[in-house]
């Protein structure tokens, strides 16, 4: 692909022991997890337990990914990307292969999970995603290449985890790694400057992707109208329209704003549907049910005022009628 030919790593067979040139740690390859443009990820056994190990060919791009992983590991309080352990070189038959070791996330792809557990999980997982993005943005980073393929749902309670953070970009710089469907530049709805609204566009497109698993191409013109039509004509997406619209048009400056509005929207809908299903043990449910009550109170108050005004009006008419 590139002008300078890079030596490709052939698949590393099961049972192979990888030992680091610098740190002298050893890892036993268990199986291949997947491969991308920059390298192959394996499940490996080590003194740390099971880890994910990525072997690449180009030490610059491997180093670049490690830079990001290290930064994310420093974010306090929230677990953002996979936890980073170490970077090293593996020498095999005279050649050096850079590799790094990170936490193994034993999760399920986002859409596989949603298909198995139900569509109502979309909103909840997006709330989680937006909370994590909010933390990432606060630290001065933008995810960049946000797409379902880079998200896993792990454990119980189900939690969204980020798999590939290679596209993460410092705020204000340009996003270099992206996937067309999730990129606002592709849709002509913005530039590729790393800012919160870039990620929020991608979040909206992930939801659209849930409604259109096969995705779709951009139209010749007026992408905005086209996307709104796509939302309107999907039963699943329609209810999210106000939020998706704002995210697609870059109206949210912060992930927390979008999260709040999504939260409010889900509350409204869930109190209707979920009243008879009190099985959820999350503390969120409590919060979810207090706010609509307040709303109801206010509309009740307005009704009373109107009624009183109405009665007063008729009473005045009645009095006036009496005088003349």
């Amino acid at each position: 692909m590139t002008g300078t030919s890079k030596n490709q790593v052939a698949d590393v067979p099961r049972g192979t022991t990888i030992s680091g040139k610098w740190n002298k740690q050893t890892y036993q390859i268990m199986k291949k997890l997947g491969s991308g443009a920059l390298g192959t990820v394996y499940l490996a056994d080590s003194v740390k337990g099971r880890v994910a190990l990525k072997i690449g060919t180009d030490s610059m791009s491997i180093t670049s990914e490690v830079n990001v992983l290290k930064q994310l590991s420093m974010v306090q309080g929230t677990v953002l990307g996979p936890f980073f352990y170490e970077i090293d070189d593996w020498e095999r038959s005279g050649k050096k292969f850079p590799f790094y070791v990170m936490e193994y996330i034993d999760g399920e792809p986002l859409f596989t999970f949603i298909n198995r557990r139900g569509k109502e999980w979309i909103g909840i997982l997006m709330l989680q995603l937006l909370r994590d993005l909010s933390a990432l943005h606060r630290e001065g980073w933008v995810f960049g290449d946000l797409k379902p393929d880079n998200l896993l749902v792990e454990g119980s309670p189900p939690t969204v985890r980020w798999l590939d953070v290679g596209g993460t970009t410092p705020m204000g710089r340009s996003v270099k790694e992206f996937t067309e469907f999730f990129d606002r530049g592709y849709w002509g709805l913005g530039n590729r400057v790393a800012e919160p609204s870039y990620d929020l566009f991608s979040v909206a497109m992930i939801v659209l992707n849930a409604g259109y698993p096969k995705r779709f191409d951009r139209p010749k013109k007026d992408a905005e109208h086209y996307l709104m039509n796509k939302i309107e004509s999907s039963q699943l997406l329609k209810e999210y329209k106000p939020i998706l619209r704002k995210a697609l048009l870059g109206k949210y400056g912060y992930a927390s704003e979008m999260r709040q509005e999504l939260f409010a929207l889900l509350q409204g809908e869930k109190t209707n549907v979920r009243k008879n299903k009190v099985n959820s043990s999350h503390s969120r449910v409590a919060a979810r049910q207090t706010r609509p009550k307040a709303k109801k109170k206010r509309t009740g108050w307005v009704e009373t005022v109107l009624l009183v005004a109405f009665l007063l009006f008729f009473y005045t008419l009645y009095l006036v009628g009496h005088i003349f």
């Binding site: 030490s59 180093t63 490690v66 830079n67 970077i87 070189d89 850079p98």
Partner: peptide, 16 residues
């Protein structure tokens, strides 16, 4: 660049 220890490479990448 590969002769630098991995930790030092990070700084080179940042410059690039």
């Amino acid at each position: 660049i590969e002769d630098l220890p991995p930790d030092k490479r990070g700084q080179v990448v940042e410059v690039v």
